[in-house]
Amino acid sequence: MKKGEPMSESYYYILLCLSKGPSHGYGIMSMTRELSGGEVRIGSGTMYGATGNLMKKGWIEEIFAQEPGEERRRLYRLTAEGREALLGEIERLKKMLAVAGEVMK
């Protein structure tokens, strides 16, 4: 997937979930399920591959949070570039919807 190309649903939801703030893998998974009304699930294999690829692109990054009384936790955070990519995708989807609205009127 290059910049400006349609995103897979998993990538889209991961970025969308992280736009609310850093989260761990499980958080992303349950939030995705919630946001999509149970329609989209991100399995572990898909999650590992997608987060790995998004990190390689520099759209998300790994941070470690040390909360009192808790273990060191691995969190994912949206980067500025990632936010830009997400907004670009939302724009693309909006345009597609608008076009559909025109045509199907």
């Binding site: 897979s8 649903e9 998993s10 989209v40 991100i42 399995g43």
Partner: peptide, 25 residues
């Protein structure tokens, strides 16, 4: 990998690849 089987859970809970592109990878 293995997961304890619970008949109440939907089948998708037992899949680690949930989209075409990651399975494709």
């Amino acid at each position: 990998f293995r997961k304890a089987y619970d008949p109440a859970l939907p089948e998708e809970e037992y899949q680690i690849f949930t989209d075409r592109s990651s399975l494709g990878e």
